[in-house]
């Protein structure tokens, strides 16, 4: 039953992704490995682009998109509800959460979690990069040059909204055929 499987997989993503936004990305890449019929690693990049260009929390947008991809309209709904269910369950122990962020053990766990989550996002970034700059076993030179250029520009003009970069990427892709 695909909807049950979708709910369960996204329930796990909701439960284990800590830190918001891109933190769900490594889990989606893992999902693409274990359930290639649902989504591919290349499609995840498109999902990030769509999710950054539309309103709503990044993690939710990506869950809806991935679920839609796997099983249509109802799939998107089930994946999204699956991802938010852990949050709702956790409030059932809400009294315990009053000073949760100041709890000593939470502090201990986060001491290790913070750098680890950055490492997980790096894993997702490397997966994405390897799809972008490698095609059919060899280096895609135009894409690699474009990537280097984009990194320099994005880091130089930090305040520019992600939407602008995505639009520029689309333009460059059409002009220079960067699809590979």
């Amino acid at each position: 039953m695909i909807f049950l499987a979708l709910f369960w997989e996204f329930f796990k993503i909701g439960l284990f992704s800590i830190g918001g936004g891109l933190a769900t990305l490594p889990f989606l890449y893992k999902l693409a490995e274990t359930h290639p019929q649902w989504l591919t690693a290349a499609q995840i990049a498109d999902m990030v682009a769509i999710s950054e260009s539309t309103p709503g929390p990044l993690g939710i947008n990506m869950a809806t998109y991935a679920g839609y991809h796997a099983a249509g309209l109802f799939g998107g709904l089930v994946a999204t509800v699956g991802e938010v269910t852990p949050s709702v369950i956790i409030i059932l122990i809400a009294r315990f959460l009053e000073n949760f962020d100041k709890n000593q053990y939470v502090g201990d766990a986060f001491w290790a979690l913070r750098p680890t989550v950055v490492g997980l996002i790096t894993f997702a970034g490397l997966r994405l990069l390897s799809i972008v700059v490698w095609s059919a076993g060899s280096l895609n030179l135009p894409a690699s040059i474009a990537f280097a250029l984009f990194v320099v520009l994005v880091l130089r003009f930090k305040k520019v909204h992600p939407l602008v970069w995505i639009a520029l990427g689309a333009g460059a892709g059409i002009l220079f055929n960067l699809g590979g």
Binding site: A42, A124, G125, L128, V132, K158, W165, A170, A172, L178
Partner: peptide
């Protein structure tokens, strides 16, 4: 083609993040 370029931009945005 557009998404080919968009993926590259997304990659750069992730590097920034």
């Amino acid at each position: 083609r557009a998404f080919g370029g968009i993926r590259i931009a997304v990659c750069a945005l992730i590097v920034q993040s």
